[in-house]
Design a protein around this nucleic acid. Sequence first.
DNA 1: GATGTAAGTTTATTTTCTGAACTTACCCTC
DNA 2: GAGGGTAAGTTCAGAAAATAAACTTACATC
Lengths: 158, 158
Amino acid sequence: MRWSEIDTIPCPVAQAMAVIGDSWTILILRDALRGATKFEEFQRATGASRAIIADRLAHLVAHKVMERVKYEDHPPRFAYRLTPRGRALQPLLMTMAHWSETQLRGATRPARRRHTVCDHAFTPVITCSHCGEPAPPDTITYDAPRIEVTKRPRPATS
Amino acid sequence: MRWSEIDTIPCPVAQAMAVIGDSWTILILRDALRGATKFEEFQRATGASRAIIADRLAHLVAHKVMERVKYEDHPPRFAYRLTPRGRALQPLLMTMAHWSETQLRGATRPARRRHTVCDHAFTPVITCSHCGEPAPPDTITYDAPRIEVTKRPRPATS
DNA sequence: GATGTAAGTTTATTTTCTGAACTTACCCTC
DNA sequence: GAGGGTAAGTTCAGAAAATAAACTTACATC
């Protein structure tokens, strides 16, 4: 199976990867969440080739993660802005950064996130929408385990 | 810049992508979190080519996200298991699946997650480690905005 | 003896990426 | 008014990576 066909897999993770899973795309989204909007900004900040930036931005626009808006007519200039769907990726990027900071000992010191509600430095904690308590991996089960869709030949009737 | 060089970028997100950002890798991790351990399981569940599975598993092992353990000597058989570092990716995958389920209208119906602490269906909510309240994107600021590391020539003193 | 399973490796072909230059269109400075 | 800068791409040839399919080793089962 080709990578370009992952969007045919009926799985939420695969569907997400079809939209944001290409190489460089996450870095583009990282920069968009930091405020980048221009083609050149994405190119410089990511370091990817211009052809890749053009391709990935078009892909994100096609999937309504970003929108392309003209902000100047002569000469034509465009800004790429996150849509609500794109802004909804912030928790994903934050979770990824947190994993990186806690699990990989790189040369990067942790970002200092501040919660403006309580005005304190914090780390993200995933909790349960029902009881509000933390929901670490070992406290989670799935009600309807995913069923492996296997094609089995139907017994011939003719 | 080549994709194989992202690991040189001093940014937590880029460092994470260097470890888990290749195409197919997230699907391999998805299956590992679902309980897959064998080479053939990963190959069948993801649909990627055998060469890709071999390459990606080796990469994950090299970065201590998975470990390769022999579970049979004659003939040699190996299992790939998540390390603590790998299991720590569960929140990332869950956040991704949640984004997909809420933001993409695919043919995939939402997984029914259950929190065993309160025994209720739930959705993941990111909260603040300090006050415990939800920390949506618009309540988060950064204390030390990332500084662009630019080399500027030191004024000559001789 | 043939088939199946498991864990890969090898190979030829196809696809994608990279770096660099090129294009259009305007503005600013000397 | 010539040259340089900015912005948003496109084009192209060469390099790198992915793909499908076959092959390998080693055993177990039919």
